[in-house]
Design a protein around this nucleic acid. Structure first.
Lengths: 224, 224
DNA sequence: ATGAAGCTACGTTTAATGACGAAAACAATG
DNA sequence: CATTGTTTTCGTCATTAAACGTAGCTTCAT
């Protein structure tokens, strides 16, 4: 869902819509004056909304206000929006590519000398791969950006570097609606029980390899 | 998220609010007549909204309509709601409740003797709380079920028990579109740097308390 | 202290909402 | 085809949102 709808919904359902408008205006750090200037109306109008003199603002006003807040933030560089809805490029993805045909997961795991830690079989096929820096991804991706990991096909294998216990990546997958066909940890410190449990629950094979990211990148590219 | 807010937001932002009202009324399988009867108004009013004669309905009207749709569905057994808001009970949630008014976060943190590990201020208000078993939640909730943590307001404080490094809960929050107003770890083993970093990125105060879950439950309930 | 910036309060105007009800158009369905 | 339920259209009226502008109040930096 996009942020405008979320804000508009909150304002509409709130017992005190004016207060909620104020909350969001302040969240975006826009003064009544700035907002009024942007909308080319008098600042007192904004005050009237927020103070509740206008008890039931129409959807048109709300839409204008909400859109204005978002647009003002975008003009300023989208600082607030990024917290909800980030759209910035990221260096967390090390490599990503898709195949035009199915590739046997079993074969891939053999080529990268992988060990399966989960009880899920490898009898499936992939159509793409993503190599991602686990820590950077968690830090820089917002919810919607997680879809970036999935390229054109969700039938893919995701490699994570910088893994400590191996819990974080599996939790991200657990919480996200898109599921990969397999997960591989690149040189993890160790593998926590919870990571394996989550893999089993999600029916996703959890593999570990001791090759490094550049080597894997080369191998995966050679399969095109 | 609260389904009412979602619907209201969609209606407000839509280029044609009337059509969106109709879409939802039909989704709930409520006739204009039934809706009008429930609201004790004339059915022509509903038609006027939907056809667009009333171009900018106020929040009061929208709220009434949306609430009516939800309440009518509940009276019928909540068949439609269940599709959006699956309502399975879960033993991962230890306690959950909402307030009818704003409560100062600062005050709450003082009452539970909390320590703020993040650099985010406590100058905000909450409208509800959830106490949840961190491990059980991760294991038993699917993506859509995470909304359960949010009760009726997303303006809430979420307490996690069974926290080891404190990374998992923050990652779940990071990946999920709904954000709480504050996160509290109940007697964590320790606090990882990444957890604090995530809290800062998400603009969510990260608090630690040494009180136990039953004590917190009692304190939070006393604020009603 | 003296602006400047931000917000509130209020009187006023106009256009639109929120509502009614009657009549008409449309579907189903016995 | 007659009946019942659903929706649309429209004329009408009271209320109120949407906007203005001015005056007044804080707060804060010069």
């Amino acid at each position: 869902m996009d942020i405008q709808e979320k804000i508009a919904g909150e304002i509409t359902i709130a017992e005190n819509p004016g207060e909620t408008i104020r909350k969001w205006r302040e969240e975006f750090q826009v003064s009544q004056l700035d907002l009024a200037r942007y909308l080319e109306i008098s600042p007192s109008v904004i005050s009237d909304y927020e103070s509740g003199r206008r008890k039931s603002p129409g959807v048109t006003s709300i839409r204008k206000i909400v859109n204005a807040l978002v647009e003002i933030d975008l003009k300023r560089g989208g600082q607030v929006l990024r917290r909800y809805n980030s759209g910035m490029p990221s260096d967390a993805i090390i490599d990503i590519s898709d195949y035009s045909h199915d590739i046997s997961l079993e074969r891939v795991i053999r080529m990268i000398s992988g060990t399966n830690y989960s009880s899920i079989g490898l009898n499936r096929y992939i159509r793409g791969y993503t190599i991602v820096d686990g820590i950077k991804a968690i830090l820089s991706f917002s919810y919607s950006e997680y879809s970036k990991l999935y390229g054109w096909s969700s039938q893919r294998i995701i490699f994570f570097t910088e893994v400590k216990l191996g819990r974080s990546p599996m939790i991200a997958i657990r919480v996200h609606p898109l599921k990969p066909a397999a997960v591989v940890y690149i040189q993890p410190d160790r593998i926590d029980d919870l990571a394996v449990k989550l893999a089993d629950v999600e029916n996703i094979p959890l593999i570990v390899t001791e090759l490094d990211a550049p080597a894997i990148s080369k191998i995966m590219a050679s399969l095109k």
